[in-house]
């Protein structure tokens, strides 16, 4: 019956020709209502559709799918692990919405380092973020655990195919930061003499070193020295510099770094860079606090 009503509604009552014959008693009832009343045919159709909807809603019978349940994961895994604040989901959401993505690899690094777990509702967010930031894929594979692997297997999600063949990675190592530190500081010093070439910036970004305080202090010292030189840096130089270092900088150097930028000159653009760095490092700090349960 509903099919006939929908057909009439789709074509329009003005375009209806002849009478409608049906063997459906309920439709007969509605059509009689529609045809015998003094009302406009369109009004009668609307009334009939409304009543039918209410009837269907009140008499809703849930469907049944007899297929047996498959693809479950052992439920005990969740119970054995210690969880930290579900607040972390809020931070990840923020990153997912496009803010402070620079904080994500570091957070993930600590999750892997601590062999910690996280609220499961965050898993789809993390898998999607890893698709966006391939640099985080290795760490994501490490931390997603059997629940993550189950989710990927279940979903057949194209975007998550990168994680399809998962080999547990080794625990990330922190011992080589000095090597990286030396390299990046040499690169940064080049900035003092000429503008940061794109390839240097790119190379700096590729250095996925840890976010240690010692290393970050070294960076800030170098930047301060650069700012102390006479060579004027353009806004582009400053922006690129900030953009390069913000991925790796430790929140504890926030004050020094932000002051260095904000003291360089009083131009609005420079102050905006300083403010953005400040906001980013605050976010980084808050996110780590939420993870560490402080």
């Amino acid at each position: 019956m509903a099919g006939t009503l929908h057909l009439i509604a789709a074509n329009g009552t003005d375009n209806l020709s002849g009478t409608i014959n049906t063997r459906d008693e309920t439709l007969d009832y509605f059509l009689n209502e529609m045809q015998n009343s003094d009302d406009d045919l369109a009004a009668r159709l609307l009334r009939g559709a409304g009543l039918l909807t209410l009837r269907e809603q009140a008499g809703y019978i849930p469907s049944n799918d007899p297929r047996p349940m498959e693809k479950t994961i052992k439920p005990d895994e969740y119970h054995q692990q210690e969880h930290y604040s579900p607040e972390i989901v809020g931070f990840l959401s923020k990153i997912y919405q496009g803010e402070y993505a620079e904080c994500y690899p570091e957070w993930l690094h600590y999750v892997a380092l601590e062999e910690a777990t996280f609220p499961y509702e965050a898993l789809p967010l993390m898998l999607t973020l890893a698709t966006w930031f391939p640099i985080t894929q290795a760490l994501t594979k490490r931390v997603m655990g059997s629940r993550g692997r189950w989710l990927i297997d279940y979903s057949g999600h194209r975007g998550w195919y990168w994680a399809k063949h998962i080999k547990p990675d080794r625990k990330p190592r922190l011992s080589k930061y000095r090597k990286y530190e030396g390299r990046i500081i040499v690169r940064l010093q080049q900035l003092g003499f000429r503008r940061l070439p794109l390839e240097v910036s790119y190379e700096l970004r590729l250095m996925t070193f840890p976010w240690t305080e010692v290393f970050s202090q070294g960076i800030v010292r170098t930047i301060k020295n650069m700012f102390g030189r006479r060579d004027a840096m353009t806004y582009d130089d400053l922006a690129r510099l900030a953009d390069t270092v913000k991925w790796y900088i430790h929140p504890d150097v926030r004050e020094n770094l932000v002051t260095a930028f904000s003291n360089y000159n009083q131009l609005n653009e420079t102050q905006a860079i300083a403010r953005n760095l400040d906001a980013l490092l605050s976010f980084r700090s808050a996110m780590l606090d939420a993870f560490m349960g402080e």
Binding site: I73, Y120, L123, P124, L125, R147, W150, Y154, H157
Partner: peptide
């Protein structure tokens, strides 16, 4: 919009 999160939470249970 959070269908995958719901699924991840349940793990099929």
């Amino acid at each position: 919009e959070h269908r995958w999160s719901l699924l991840a939470l349940s793990g099929g249970h």
